[in-house]
Amino acid sequence: MKMAAPVYAQVKITGALADKLRAEAAQRRLSLNALATEYTLLGLEAPGPEDDALAGVERRIVSTLLASRGDVDTLSASVDILAALVDTLAKMLLVHLPEPSGDEREAIGASALARYEKLLAQTANTGFDEKRPRAIQRIAELLLGRCPAPEADPGE
């Protein structure tokens, strides 16, 4: 089954209703988008004069929400990969760097700061492909090679 492309919509609510939405979102600790989505789904579930048309709209909105959930899962996986990468790097550095002797400590500190500044500049210049870190993209490719995607979604 081919998934439809996601649809994004903007809704502008002003006045007292906007204040009511902000207050309820803060009280329930939800984003304004999540609360507006919840109200939209509740409105679609309410019976109306054209139930068949509303059911079709509801299915399209629900499929859009499910597709957005996939994007959130992808972002969460990227954060997990980044945390694993930083953890591995920190362990490698701590294990392989010897403790400097007292008289060399200042020189090594200055050298480390210079190398750190060079690393930051290098990362800013070559570490990203558009807005995505290249390292995360490469790790994701390697993980996909190890764990191929299932042919069909078990939830369908």
Results as ranks from 00 to 15, higher is better:
residue 77 A to M: 15
residue 67 A to M: 11
residue 115 R to V: 13
residue 67 A to I: 00
residue 113 L to W: 11
residue 35 L to E: 00
residue 37 T to C: 05
residue 144 L to W: 11
residue 47 P to E: 07
residue 115 R to L: 10
residue 42 L to W: 05
residue 66 L to D: 02
residue 58 E to T: 02
residue 74 T to S: 10
residue 66 L to E: 09
residue 51 D to W: 05
residue 96 H to S: 08
residue 44 L to G: 00
residue 42 L to Q: 12
residue 108 I to A: 02
residue 45 E to V: 05
residue 135 A to R: 01
residue 127 G to V: 00
residue 86 V to D: 05
residue 47 P to K: 02
residue 87 D to T: 09
residue 94 L to H: 09
residue 138 R to S: 13
residue 60 R to G: 06
residue 57 V to L: 15
residue 124 A to G: 08
residue 145 G to T: 03
residue 95 V to Q: 08
residue 48 G to Y: 00
residue 123 T to P: 00
residue 36 A to I: 01
residue 79 V to D: 04
residue 137 Q to M: 15
residue 114 A to C: 12
residue 91 K to I: 09
residue 93 L to S: 06
residue 104 E to T: 11
residue 50 E to F: 04
residue 93 L to T: 03
residue 131 K to G: 11
residue 127 G to Q: 10
residue 122 Q to F: 14
residue 124 A to H: 14
residue 92 M to V: 09
residue 133 P to E: 15
residue 55 A to I: 01
residue 111 S to P: 08
residue 56 G to L: 03
residue 139 I to Q: 06
residue 90 A to V: 04
residue 44 L to V: 02
residue 127 G to S: 07
residue 145 G to H: 06
residue 119 L to T: 01
residue 59 R to A: 14
residue 81 I to F: 09
residue 33 N to P: 07
residue 106 E to I: 12
residue 52 D to S: 10
residue 96 H to G: 01
residue 105 R to Y: 14
residue 38 E to Y: 03
residue 128 F to T: 00
residue 142 L to Q: 07
residue 131 K to F: 03
residue 120 L to I: 08
residue 114 A to P: 05
residue 103 D to I: 13
residue 134 R to N: 13
residue 69 R to T: 02
residue 90 A to E: 04
residue 78 S to T: 14
residue 61 I to H: 00
residue 41 L to E: 06
residue 145 G to Q: 08
residue 76 S to F: 09
residue 110 A to R: 14
residue 46 A to W: 01
residue 67 A to Y: 06
residue 136 I to Y: 01
residue 79 V to I: 08
residue 122 Q to C: 09
residue 101 S to K: 10
residue 124 A to N: 11
residue 147 C to Y: 11
residue 86 V to S: 06
residue 126 T to Q: 13
residue 52 D to Y: 04
residue 83 A to I: 07
residue 47 P to C: 12
residue 92 M to A: 15
residue 90 A to K: 02
residue 86 V to E: 09
residue 99 E to H: 03
residue 121 A to W: 11
residue 68 S to G: 09
residue 41 L to M: 11
residue 141 E to A: 11
residue 55 A to G: 05
residue 50 E to H: 05
residue 79 V to S: 13
residue 137 Q to E: 14
residue 110 A to E: 13
residue 88 T to Y: 04
